[in-house]
């Protein structure tokens, strides 16, 4: 398995350099000042809430968050208050990318015109998969294209969760959502395969030099990626896998296990794209079959072996693209 591979036809790979960020060596080394604090009503075991907490730990005090409508808005701010110890602004589910563009433009102008004497802040949009890959895609694309110095994070709970778990373009094939109920006419529930959001952002937005996937099950990796993204001047993008016990139908104590299983089965991969070069961060030695992931979640409860095979084939093709197609050991 190659450490880095050439991808997306990028020519003469430039050296990958993301400097000036303070690396977190291990969990104990993580900062102990929290900027996403208790006092919200997300579900027990909520993956996105953990992603928020880790992101805020990594980004620190000089940060502004924008939060498009979704669970991380509604469940966090239900009673006119919110769990952030840094500035936070609600955006529509549609326009997170545009609102952070404006915040960034404002700071650029105000610092230049001496109306603001603080340091240029970290500006982060923390959007759901709906607010990133679907109804928010236009604003995300506009923001990444224009080259604003911001970080756009898609926390991916693989559904429109806040409205009661409906399918989004990130919902996996075969998942039961309230808009894709399996039935005799549609036995698999969700019929289509998800978009590849990171690839879309990477391939179509030359201003974006740093992109990364992450998972709440790998917190140190996640926090370091946030720091790298913020250290880079210019638009950066992260796609964070964030299991949702309510929407995926698993025990709320199992969020990290499900996150790990996703990586071990190849349903999720951890990698970065820096200056057009892909760097895989973690490749499981022994890949587990997708069936194991499927069996652990109620949303796939109706899948037949054939359907699970289709999902496996899809995962294999994605892994092949990353040069990660290691064989699954026989059980």
């Amino acid at each position: 398995m190659p450490e880095t591979i050439k991808w997306l036809g990028s020519e003469a790979p430039t050296e990958v350099r993301i400097e000036g960020y303070q690396e977190i060596k291990n969990v104990k080394d993580a900062p102990d000042v929290e900027y996403y604090v208790p006092g919200h009503r997300t579900c027990a075991g909520c993956g996105p809430a953990l992603a928020y907490r880790l992101t805020a730990l990594a980004s620190g005090k000089n940060t502004i968050f924008a939060g498009p409508t979704g669970c991380m808005y509604v469940a966090n701010t239900s009673y006119l208050c919110g769990p952030w110890a840094v500035p936070w602004i609600h955006t529509q589910i549609t326009n997170g990318g545009a609102v952070i563009s404006g915040i960034e433009a404002s700071y650029k102008a105000m610092i230049r015109k001496k109306k603001y004497d603080g340091e240029f802040p970290n500006i982060i949009c923390f959007a759901g998969d709906g607010g990133s890959a679907d109804i928010g895609l236009q604003a995300l694309s506009g923001c990444m294209y224009r080259g604003h110095d911001v970080l756009f994070i898609c926390y991916d709970n693989e559904s429109y969760a806040n409205t009661g778990i409906q399918t989004s373009p990130m919902t996996p094939y075969g998942a039961h959502t309230t808009f894709t109920p399996p039935g005799p006419v549609v036995p698999e529930g969700k019929k289509t395969f998800p978009k590849d959001l990171l690839k879309m952002v990477a391939a179509g937005h030359p201003a974006v030099k740093y992109l990364a996937t992450a998972s709440i099950a790998y917190p140190v990796d996640l926090m370091n990626k946030v720091r790298k993204a913020l250290a880079h001047k210019g638009p950066t993008f992260m796609h964070i896998h964030a299991p949702c016990p309510k929407g995926w139908a698993f025990e709320s104590s199992k969020t990290l296990d499900i996150g790990k299983l996703a990586v071990d089965t190849g349903m999720w991969t951890l990698y970065e794209i820096v200056n057009g070069q892909v760097k895989v961060n973690y490749a499981p030695r022994r890949r587990k079959p997708v069936a194991e992931y499927v069996q652990a979640q109620g949303r796939f409860g109706h899948l037949t072996p054939e359907m699970t095979e289709r999902l496996q084939a899809f995962v294999d093709s994605k892994l092949a693209e990353l040069g990660l197609l290691v064989p699954i050991p026989a059980v």
């Binding site: 549609t94 326009n95 952070i100 404006g102 102008a109 694309s141």
Partner: peptide, 22 residues
Amino acid sequence: FVHAEGEHAQLSVVLGASAAGA
């Protein structure tokens, strides 16, 4: 001078900028 990708974005950009004090 921000080239918004549509009017919805225009209004969103200026909302964010105004919220930040511009």
